[in-house]
Structure formats: structure tokens, C-alpha cells
Amino acid sequence: MDNLQILFVAPVFSLQLLIDGILIGAVFALAAYGMALVWGVMKIINFAQGEFVILGGFLLYALKEAGLHPFLGVPVATAALFVIGWVIYRIAVVRVVEKDLFISILATFGIAILLQQLMNQIFGADVQTVESGLGTWFLLDGQVTVLQIKVVSFFIAMVLGVILALFLKMTRLGQAIRATAQHFRAAQILGVDTDRVYAITFALNAAICGAAGALVSMIWVIQPFMGLAYTIRSFMIVIVAGLGNVIGVALAGLGLGAAENFAGFILGAEFQAAFIFSLLVVILLWRNFRLSLKRQYLE
């Protein structure tokens, strides 16, 4: 808690934490947008979300090791995750997509464990990061530093989010996806191939996560067992923002990034994970409390 005093003594440090938090938050928001998409369209809470993120990061890491420039590696990792997402849908998710939520959560949780172990086996359990080669900006006489890669990744994340939103609004396929989200039975009757829509939705989500992970590997670190935290962050953001609220997801993502950064600084880095998961519990209790204020009724 001593660090709390630092924030009062040197307010400029708060600015530093805020900037860093918001820049990272954009990546959280991107992954959360993917989760909201799958949740809304397929009625699945994808618990392998974080593993897709980490896998994207490790693919970028591998590409960098193979000699590819990291910025060229980002689209490659994204495309690779699209294919992986498609394959995972075809093999496993297709069989749980219309079952109850518990089964699909458990199945995707199993996929998450499988991916964790595969990454651990292939890439090792060490913490890795990818050097982007970009420099640092110094603001306010060097009191605030901003890594350029964080700014770049912030904009990449935002642009990807906007592209996805436009894709869902404008294209025929995007409309089919939204129609399926609203009423899959009706969409089916109107000739939408919902199986294909599900496959594309799941693959798209994996691709988004892959992009987010590639960015994470450059601005932060990746490790095979770090995925669950990203899943939980995505889940919290979606709960707070609500399904189908793109602006809300973006704002909640940025807010979460900032909150986490402050908490990590004040409580100490060793309690950062505890903070995320405690926050999850608090958010669920808060949501539940709000629901219980209006008694539900059934037909």
C-alpha cells in the first residue's frame, strides 16, 4: 500500500499508469469483442478465448524467430488462428453448439487445457516477449514514457474492431451472422446456412484473438498458462458492457486496462491476478444484485 502514497506525492505517475492501462485495454477490448460475437451468435461462452490469444502471441514469436518482421507476422498469426479456429469448430465445438451452456463451457475449457499443454510442450513454459524494434516517446520532460509499440497496437486493435463491426453491418455474410444471433431458427428457415455461420463466427473470433495475442506478445509478455486471465477479462468486459454493445465493450476494455494497471501498482504485482479474479466475483455479484432488485416472473 506504500505505493498508494507515491500516487499522491507524484500525480504524474498516475498519468503514466493511466496511459499504459488504456493502451493495453484496447487489446482486452478486442478479445472481448470476439467473445461477445461467439456468445451472441452461438450462445457459447468460449473458455478457450485466452488460449487463442496466447497462441497468437506464440505464433508471432515463432515467426519472429524464423526471421519474419513482427509487423508482417501479425496478419500471418491472425490468418493462422482463423484456420485453427475453423478446425476446432469442425472437430469439437460443432457438437456442443446447441447443447446447454454448462457442456459448452466445459468443452471449451477442455480445449483451453489442451492448447495450454500443447503450447507448453512446443514452446516451453518460459515467459516470452517479441521485440518490435520501435522506440519510446518521452513526454513532460521525460516524466512520462510511452512505448511506441503500445500506441501502434492500440490503433491496430481499434481499427480491427471497427473493420469487424463494419463487416457485420455491411456485408451479406455479416448480416447472416447477425440474423443467426437474433433468431437462429428463423435464420435457418430463411435459408441461412447456420452451420457455416457458426464455423465462420468461431474462426473469426479465433482470428481476432490471434491478432490481440500477437499485439500482447509485443507490448507485454506471453506464457502458456496465462490464457485464463484473458478469458476472464473478456468475460468481465462483456458482462459489464452487455452483448452487442460495441462502444460499451471498447470503453469497458479501456477501463479494465486502467483499473488493472492501478491495482497492480498499488497492491503489488503478485496480487494482480488475485485482483482480476476477485473483480470477476464482484462484478458477477453486482450484476446479480441488480437483477434481483426486479423480481423475475415466468409464463
Binding site: 426486479k294 423480481r295 423475475q296 416472473y297 415466468l298 409464463e299
Partner: peptide, 13 residues
């Protein structure tokens, strides 16, 4: 009708 039933048995205030 059903709303009245629901009110009586306490589903909503």
C-alpha cells in the same frame, strides 16, 4: 389475466 396471477402469487411487486 396471467399478469394478475403473477401479481397475486408474488412474481412481481
Amino acid at each position: 389475466k396471467t399478469t394478475l396471477f403473477n401479481s397475486i402469487v408474488g412474481y412481481h411487486p
